[in-house]
Amino acid sequence: MSSSSNNESLIELLQTISTTCNRYVAICIFIFGVVGNMLNIFVLSQRCFRSNSCAWSFLVSSIANLISILFGLLTRIISGWAIDPTSYIGWICKIRAHVVFTTRTIALWLIVIATIDRWLLSSIDANRRRKSTLKNAQRCTTVIIILSILLYIQQLFCYEANLVNTSLKCNSRTAACLYLSNLSFAVITILIPLFLMSVFGLLTVLNVRQSQRRLQSLALRNTTAIAIRSSATTGEHPHGNLKRKADHSLLRMLLVQVLLMAILTLPLSIQNFYSFFSGENKSAIYEAVDYFSYNITDLIYFVSNGIPFYIYTLCGGHVFRKALHDLFELLKQKIVRHQACLLQK
């Protein structure tokens, strides 16, 4: 009797914590995520980043993150105060699942493309460097978007609302659909992209160090020639110098983002694997713990959708912060002009 009472108390406690997180934590993530991604979109659309292939990947990834937060967190916030509409309206359940799974996949795979792009650009092989182009980045983006939509098209058929005997009322209606969804999300959306980011991130760092050693070696052989070449590329071509600074800033932003993506997305992947291999017959206490762990790790994942702007601001160097400053100055000038027009009327 005492054991049953303790289990009920634990279940009630976990439900209370989950509801509180949906009410307050989700709102905080929603606000800073929406604001951050919108600022990212405005900044990365400016002229200094417009022709950069890595910045293009960051831009589209920010759009995907914004959509994921809007579709995924709004219903979570509602569930903290009222009944979640996805739990009893079938078409909302299906669309939310498809959009959230798809945009999360797009966002992470575009960071993979950005990592590969930095690896190509940092290579001492001229043929590889020539492949780092905006056109190639746009082609890869198109392919990723199409494949991501097709990968999770199953959600439109598998997901149902008003499910019984399950902690999530909006979920896959069959065990086969649930296993396929959890496995594809954990492996294709999270683990494989994180692995590729890590590999190409390390390769990029090795390329940079190799280039530095090569430049040092050339400097020792012919200091005068290097000085002339340096002045020709930096002193007489300020645009090339700015472009090189942007490349270095984007590389730094990318490496920090890869590290934080791994920290914030892996918990949900581990939770999916745990739920995947735990079987179907679950006790009430297990269902409560499973839902609680899913709720917390899913909120942590949404943090990864909302932090890119703050990473770029802190690690993007002078180039990104100047672009952000220029954006605010432009908005300020428009507001002043608008107020002047109103006063004239």
Rank of each mutant, 00 (worst) to 15 (best):
E160V: 02
N165V: 08
N165K: 05
N165L: 04
N165S: 13
N165E: 11
L168D: 08
K169N: 04
K169P: 00
C170W: 06
C170S: 02
C170F: 13
C170H: 02
N171Y: 03
S172Y: 04
R173K: 13
T174C: 03
A175L: 13
A176T: 11
A176Q: 10
C177W: 14
L178K: 06
Y179C: 07
Y179M: 14
L180K: 12
L180R: 14
S181L: 12
N182Y: 12
N182L: 15
L183C: 13
L183E: 09
S184A: 10
S184M: 09
A186K: 10
A186R: 06
I188L: 15
I188D: 07
I190V: 13
L191W: 10
I192G: 09
I192W: 01
P193N: 03
P193W: 12
F195A: 13
F195C: 12
F195I: 10
M197A: 06
M197L: 11
S198E: 06
S198V: 03
V199S: 00
F200R: 05
F200P: 03
G201S: 05
L202Y: 09
L202S: 09
L203F: 11
T204G: 11
V205K: 14
L206H: 08
L206R: 12
N207M: 04
N207T: 13
V208G: 05
R209F: 04
R209P: 01
Q210Y: 14
Q210K: 15
Q212H: 11
Q212I: 06
Q212F: 01
R214F: 02
L215A: 08
L215K: 00
Q216K: 03
Q216T: 04
Q216L: 11
S217I: 00
L218C: 03
L218P: 00
L218T: 00
L218G: 02
A219C: 07
R221E: 02
R221P: 01
N222K: 00
T223M: 04
T224P: 00
T224S: 04
A225D: 01
A225G: 08
I226S: 00
I226P: 00
A227V: 01
R229E: 00
S230N: 09
A232C: 14
A232N: 12
T233I: 08
T233P: 00
T234Q: 08
T234G: 06
T234E: 13
E236R: 15
E236W: 04
E236Y: 13
P238A: 11
H239A: 14
G240H: 11
G240E: 06
N241H: 08
N241D: 02
L242T: 12
L242Q: 05
K245Q: 15
K245S: 14
K245A: 15
K245L: 15
A246T: 14
D247F: 01
D247V: 13
H248W: 15
H248Y: 11
H248P: 01
S249W: 07
S249V: 08
S249T: 12
L250Y: 07
L250C: 07
L251M: 14
R252H: 07
M253A: 04
L255T: 05
V256P: 00
V256L: 03
Q257N: 15
Q257M: 07
